[in-house]
Structures are given as C-alpha cells and as structure tokens.
Amino acid sequence: MSTAELVNHRPARKWALSAVAILVSIVVFVIPFAFIVLTAVKDRQQSADLNFAWPHQFRIVQNFVEVVKARDYMLVIAFINSTVLTVASVAGMVILAAMAGFVLQRRKSRWNGLINFLVLSGLIIPPAVVPTIWVLQKLGLFKTLPGLILIEIAFGLSFCVLLFRAFVATIPRELDEAAVIDGAGPFGLFFRVIFPLLRSVIVTVVVVQSVAVFNDFTNPLYFLPGDQNATVQLTLYNFNSQFSTQYNLLFMNILLITIPPLIMFLFFNRQIVAGMTSGAIKG
C-alpha cells in the first residue's frame, strides 16, 4: 500500500500511538454498541438502571420473542414492509438510473446541460414535503407502499445517475458499434451488452442505496403514516413512546434493525467504500 506515512516510524511511538488509538476507539465507538447489546439481553428491571453492568440473567430469547410479538407482531409486518420497500425501490433505481446514465453519457445533445443541472438539483434541493403529499394524494398513492417506493426512487435517482454515467464512460464505444453491426436494437444493446458490464457499479449502487432506504426515517414518516404499514424505523420510533419503561425491549429492537446493515458491512465493505467515496468525490 502506498499510503502516506506521516506518523513517525520509531517503534516505541508507534506502539504508544496505536494503544491510545485503540483505547479511545473502544471508549468512543465500541462501548455504545456494547451497551446496546447488553441492555437488549437484560431483564426489564435491570435495564431500567441504564448502566453498563453485566446482565444478571441473559434473556435473549424471551426479549426477542416479546419484542416480535408486541402490538400484534408489528415488527414482523414492519420487516416485511421494509424489505419490500428496499428491494422494489433499489431495483427501480438501478434500472432507471442505468438507462438514463447510459444515454446521458453516450449521446451528446443540447439537453445534456439541462439534464445535468436537474441531476445536481436532486442532490442539493430538500424535497418539498406537503406539496409532495398533495401530488401523491391526487394520484391516489398517498399512504400506500407503491407511492413510497416511487418517492424513494425519485429522491435516489440523482446519486445513481451520477455513478452510472461515470462508469459508462469507461466502457469503450467500439463495443456499442460492434453490437449494432451485429443487429442489436437500442434495448438489445443496453440490456444484453451494456447492463451486464455494469455489474460492479450495480453492486455498489445496490449496497449503498439499500442501506440508505432501509435506514430512511423521514420519508416513511411523511408519506406512509399509519401503524399497519409501518417500516422498521417507524416501529423503533413508535416503540420508544410505548416502551419508555422497557429499555430491554427498545434496545432489542435497535439491535435487530442494526443487523441488516451489519451484514451488508461484513460482506460488501469494499463496494460500500467505493460507492461512498466515488459518489462523493464527484459531488
């Protein structure tokens, strides 16, 4: 690795610095997560102390069952809703943004300036909440899951288009020409030739956006209110008022919704890093 080595090479200093860094990282970053896990397995009474003590008894299974059963299995419904929302909106984003990014990169026209401007606006402008609700209501999509899926697609498109446009630029045009000579139409060219080549950037987009959509709180709060179609982030928020005296269940819930991002992180660390920095450097 050709990394900048600013810190001195002397071993004693290196070890001292490492020890301090690890110690600080444990206090600042590990303890909050350890606190979540510990509180999640405590019994109700001990969890109310809010301290860092070792649990008197481990109630992993009981707490898990209790939190899942709460309010007529709302957490299960919420996990299903969140999964549907995440899968559908990320799939939509990938296909639509890949198509748009492809043509935007390949075809130079006088509209490109306007389109680029719109893409950047999508990154900067905060969405107008009540007018969006008004539009959704006119379309009959307010308080429905398809409505929220379309919202997530609309708000996520800009970021995805930027990534796809940058990646399409690295695919040689000769490939397009060869495919066209072989008789591929616009759709054949895109779906049979280009789309498979986008695989690495697709993985990046899928990972980054599914974490973003899964963790999204604001949009479900505004556009999908109501208990029967809550998403996991909303259950957490609602549970907070309901479980204000049952910290063990609240933290079990926090623990459960931290697991999907953790799995993503363990398996796709590299793609997440690639997506977040490449998208960011362009910004």
């Binding site: 748009a100 719109l118 007018p131």
Partner: peptide
C-alpha cells in the same frame, strides 16, 4: 438511419422525477 442511444431511455426516470420531485418543488 439508426441511433442506438434512444431518448426514450430517459422517459421513465423523467416521469418519476418530474412528477414526484420537480412538480412539488415548483408547487411549493
């Protein structure tokens, strides 16, 4: 005679983005 890069590819993105982002922004 033949363009492999069709502007139709913008259409689905353009519809969703305009209806759910641009229209509300201007309406606001």
């Amino acid at each position: 005679v033949y363009r492999p890069y069709s502007n139709w590819f913008f259409l689905p993105s353009a519809i969703i983005y305009s209806v759910l982002f641009l229209v509300p922004t201007f309406a606001s």
